[in-house]
Structure formats: C-alpha cells, structure tokens
Nucleic acid binder design. Structure first.
Lengths: 350, 350
DNA sequence: CTTTAGCACTCTTTGCTTCTGAGTGCTAAT
DNA sequence: ATTAGCACTCAGAAGCAAAGAGTGCTAAAG
C-alpha cells in the first residue's frame, strides 16, 4: 500500500495530538481539525489502512488510534517539523547555563539537573574519555607539619591534588628530586605501565624520598582511573511520575531501575557512534526495561578527546521536536563552553 | 487515665505490627499474639482507652487501630527496644563503607546513596562547616605553556587547585614572590576581608606577578564559599514509592518536592542542636509537606570543625529501631573514618 | 472490680450487573 | 473516491447486594 500525502498528514496529526493529550485519537476530532478537508468516514478508511501498514494501533476496538513504534519512527524521521526555541526559552537556557567555574564532574551533574528541569523528564549526563588518560606532570609541595601536597596534572589538563602525611622526615630538596625523577620516568604512561619494576627503579633513583613513590603512584592510578571512568548522573527521576503513562508506580519503577548506573555505564561504548541527536523509540532501546519508553540523547565534545552525553528518558509519547531542540541547544553551548573557557583564562579543574 | 504496663504492651504490639504490615491492627490478632494473655474483648477495652488518650486512632469505625503521632512518639521514646545489627548487616555496612580515597563531596554523595540502599528509603547527606573557613596556604606552580597551577589549602586542610593561564609573561621567581606575599597577607582571612584595598596593596608589593592577584583571590573566594556552603545530596527518592502509603503518586511527589534542596538547606542551622540521632515524627517535622512522614537523622563529626548529617525520610510507619541502628552505625564509622584516615597517611582531599 | 463471651451495628471491600458513549467497520448512496 | 448512516463492540462509570472485619456495649462469670 502506498503512503499518500494525505496519509502522512493524518499520521502526523495523530502523533501530535496524541503527544499533547495522551489519549487515543478518534476519526471525529481529526476531521474537525483545520486543514482536514474530508469527513470522519474517509479518515476512518485511511486510519484502517495506516493500521494495516503497522503505523497505528488500537488499544481496543472501540477506542481511537495511537501511533505504533513504527509510526513514531516514521514521524521522527520524516514528518516531524523542527521546533523553534522561543526567545524566552533560549534566554532561560542561557541563564541556566551560566555555570560557575567548577569541576567537570560538578558541571556534568548540574547539567543533568538542568536538562531534567527544562524537559520535565528524567535526564542523564555523562562524560567519557576517548583515549586513556596519562599523567602529564607531577608536583610535590612541602606543606609543613610533616605533610606534603601531591599535585597531578593529567593529559586532559585536569589537575588533581591530595594532601599526604609524610611517613618519614624528608627535606624540600628530597621532594624536588623525587618530582624530577617522576616527571622523567612516569609521565605519559597509562596506569597499567606502573609495574613493580618501574616502581622499584624509580624509588631507587629518587634518593631519600624514594619511599614515597608507591604512595604517589597509587594516587596517580586512582586519579587516572577516575578520569577514565565515565560517571553517570541521573536527575529528576520523579519527573517521570508526572507523565500519565507512569501513573502506575510499578511501571515507573521498572523503567527507573534501569537508569541506575549499570545499564547506562555501557552507553559510552555506543557513544562514539552517535552523531548529533539520536532518538530511540520504544523497542529500539538500550535495555529491555525501556521497551515502552523513548530515549533521546545528544553528544557533545569537551575537547582533549573527552566527550559528553546528555539525554532524557520519557514515554514513547514525548514531544520529540521540543526535546530534541532543547537538547541540541544545550549540547552545542556546552561544547562551546568547554572549548574556549571564560576569559580570565582557566581550564581544567581542581 | 493511667498508662498501665499492659497498655504499654498493647501499644507496642500495635506499633510493631503496624510497622510490619502497614494495616490497621484489630483486637483479634493482638489477642492471638504470644504473650497476650487476655481475650480480644479485654484488648478492645484497652484499645478504647488508648484511643481516648490520643495514642491510637481509627481510620474508620470498622477498622483496627493505628498509632497516632503521639503514639509513635511514646513508642520511640520509651517503648522501642534497640535493634541489634546482625553480623551480616555490620559486614555489609562495613563493606559499603569502604570508600576509596576521595573528595569529601563525593564521599558525602556516596554516603547518601549507601544509606538509601541500606534503609530502602530516600536518604540525605550533607556537611557544614562549623566556623568560616579561611585560606591557610597558597602555592603557585609554574606549569609550562604559559600557565600555572594555583593550589589553595584551607583551614580544614582541604586542598583545592586550579590551572590558570598566564595573562602575561612571568618567571618562576615572580610566582614565588607572589606566593610569599599572599601567604603573608591573605591567609587566615575570610573572603569578606578581601577588600579592594587589600587587593591593591598586595598586588603592588608582589612585583611583576601582581596582576595575578585578582585571579588568585577570586578563586580563593570561590573555594572558601563552596567550602562554607553545605551541599545536600538526596538519593533514592524512588524508594519512597515502594512504601504502601505512597502508592498515591501525588502524595509521594508532594513529600519529595520538599526534599529538593531548598527545605533542607536550612537544616544545618538546626544541626548543632542535634545530639546523636533525632527522630521527627509526622507533625513535628521540618516542613509542612512532611507532616505525614517521619525523618530520622544523625549527626557526625568530620573534624576540623566540620559536621555531617545523614538521614532518611519515610512513612511515619517506618521501622525506627532498625533505621536508627543503621544510621548510628554509619555515622559512627564515618566519624571514625574522617578522624584518623587510612594508614598510608592522607587527609584532606583534592 | 476485672475479664470475657455474645451480639448488634457500622463501614469498607469486593464482585456483579447494567448502562452509557465513544469509536469503529461496513454498506449503500452520492 | 467520498460520505452518510447504522449496527456492533467494548471500556469505564454507576449502582447494588453480599461478605467480612472490627468495634462498642451489655450482661454474665471469675
């Protein structure tokens, strides 16, 4: 059967109406719509065709039609019209984006909160390093009271530090020597290269402070692995309850349970594949628990080979156009923000 | 009317049964309980008395009794028996507590997740500084590529850093001088003492690197204010939905909405007053939205004048004994953990 | 004087039936 | 090809009776 223009028009109308009302759409309301120049009977015939083509379904015989997943797919791919952000919206988005100078982690968690707020749906945000991070530079600062500060700068220009108590007495000179040795031998290495042999070699050549080497490399390993690990933040889970399809708590819980870290942590794997915004409708989804929901996500680049992902989860019947527009805007600006940071030049983090 | 031993016994039985079943308790089941050596009729009489005394209530005439808020209060204060953690429980708590060396912030957020998991209820965790933090020490490290790392150690021995691009050329000597000046004039001061005059005086005496002073103090202010601000983490909101009293989504949402930062941020104010574990039953609660719920919270000390608070939110009918025991155990160990950190001596954070 | 058995009464819950209305599919006329 | 008309279906609301749980009170028993 052919998908005529009129059929498309009807499908679009059904999808959009259903998105708004969450109620099955009947032939009568459709025929009453402006621009629909035919009777309800004609529309019924068309709807029967669309149902046969697998684009619509009927909850039960005496109800109107709702879009099937395939129907949504078609709508999203071909029928959906771009949603234009209003001035008000861009303004409040901009306002929300005024993130203070903060650690990447915090920015990400805040972003997930903001996205959730803007879309009124549960949102997730995460980052992942594209290539394994390494240490770019070690610094050891004497801090009095028998302790020193270990400062590590990673390949992503992220700086982390830690106050460590000295297990032995040690002069500033000793620390300087150790730092020099570390910078010579342990930079640009992934954690798995920190072999016991390396460790011993370094400690020997580092003089009195050599005993600190394990502590230092331990922390380095910790920092690097944290850096590599993408942390996932999920916010606004409760927003899901506002959606009529999740008035049933069990359903909501099922969906939300799959958002608890586990499932999402293997998302970054797919991340590289995503170009721009991706919309997963119902059964196409990541996890089987999400088969009745949709996920919309957008990638953005942080620079330094890092990528980020923001997305929302909602009923299949969500306003894709609007959500997509907002996510893209967000992602774009985040990318820009990370690319050329605020003027009093700063980069990396604490 | 007098509160006889038997009345107490009955009240306790009712509370505990109701905690388990979430159903009103009738005279018949009570009389059938082991240790109840009287008929259902007698119990009915006693229950009528307890109701009159305001310790019990009846959802409707033909239902059993449930404890009133006052009844809970009495139970919590006098009747509740300590819940002893089983070996299994302490073990899994210990296991959960094996927090990796991490920032205070992250520990706190993780703690809230753990508490929620252990109690199966929404949990919150937060910290607050008892006295205004100050900078204890500045360090400036040349980092090549025309940038330097600013390292700040605060009064709480927390170390924060930030990579800053140099807006001008500047030698390592210049930075050293600047650090010396800053350490001489700007330590032990709260951010509000960073007046324009101070700023100017310092920049003048700091030689070539004087132009960096605003950047440095800006960041210091940021760090200190972040330190002073207590961040609240709430986890496991969805857990509330597992409780039968919140099957009604609107109710759940109402309660959870009051957990979104705002309400909780003025909790720290009361924090000082809390000794050990505090149980707020229904109407005694912090926010009016919580009038049908209970909050249990425990304070712990982090050292350096910092305090933390962990707590859970749940139905008035929650297992106070168990929750209290778990919270206390948690708090105790957290306190210990912060007091004398892991052996390879470390303290403070990144 | 306290306890208990017995009983009438109340009120929620549950299951059932009926009714209503929205929406369909089909047929016949335009 | 479109449309009007009509019989048919089915979910949801409304109404109702029966069941069951639990109470309060009274009167007898310890």
């Amino acid at each position: 059967m052919e998908l005529t223009e009129r059929k498309k028009k009807i499908l679009r109308a059904i999808v959009e109406n259903y998105i708004q009302t969450a109620e099955p759409v009947g032939s009568k309301v459709l025929s009453a719509m402006p621009g629909m120049d035919c009777s309800s009977a004609t529309i019924r015939n068309e709807m029967a065709d669309l149902t046969q083509m697998g684009l619509l379904e009927q909850p039960h015989t005496s109800a109107g039609r709702i879009p099937s997943p395939a129907g949504y797919r078609l709508y999203v791919d071909e029928l959906m019209q771009d949603y234009r952000l209003s001035v008000d919206e861009t303004q409040s988005l901009n306002q929300a984006m005024e993130l203070k100078l903060q650690e990447v982690d915090k920015v990400i968690s805040q972003v997930s909160k903001m996205v959730s707020k803007m879309t009124n749906l549960p949102a997730m945000a995460m980052t992942a390093a594209a290539n394994a991070p390494t240490v770019k530079r070690f610094d050891l600062i004497m801090a009095g009271e028998g302790s020193f500060i270990l400062v590590i700068m990673t390949s992503g220009d992220v700086v982390k530090n830690r106050l460590i108590k000295l297990p032995l007495t040690c002069t500033e000179q000793d620390l300087k020597l150790l730092a020099a040795v570390l910078n010579a031998s342990c930079t640009d290495l992934t954690p798995d290269s920190f072999t016991p042999e390396l460790l011993e070699r370094v400690s020997r050549s580092a003089g009195p402070a050599g005993a600190l080497v394990p502590l230092v490399l331990d922390y380095a390993t910790h920092v690097l692995s944290q850096q590599a690990k993408s942390e996932v933040y999920v916010s606004g889970q409760m927003k899901l309850l506002g959606q009529p399809e999740y008035r049933d708590i069990d359903k909501a819980q099922e969906v939300l349970s799959s958002l608890d870290g586990e499932t999402l942590s293997n998302l970054p794997a797919t991340m590289a594949d995503i170009a721009g915004t991706q919309i997963l409708v119902g059964p196409e989804n990541i996890a089987k628990e999400l088969k009745d929901t949709s996920v919309v996500m957008t990638r953005f680049d942080i620079g330094d080979g890092m990528q980020g992902l923001i997305g929302v989860v909602g009923p299949t019947r969500m306003d894709y156009a609007q959500v997509t527009a907002r996510l893209s805007y967000f992602a774009e600006n985040l990318g820009r923000m990370f690319a050329k940071p605020e003027l009093p030049p700063s980069q990396g983090e604490e």
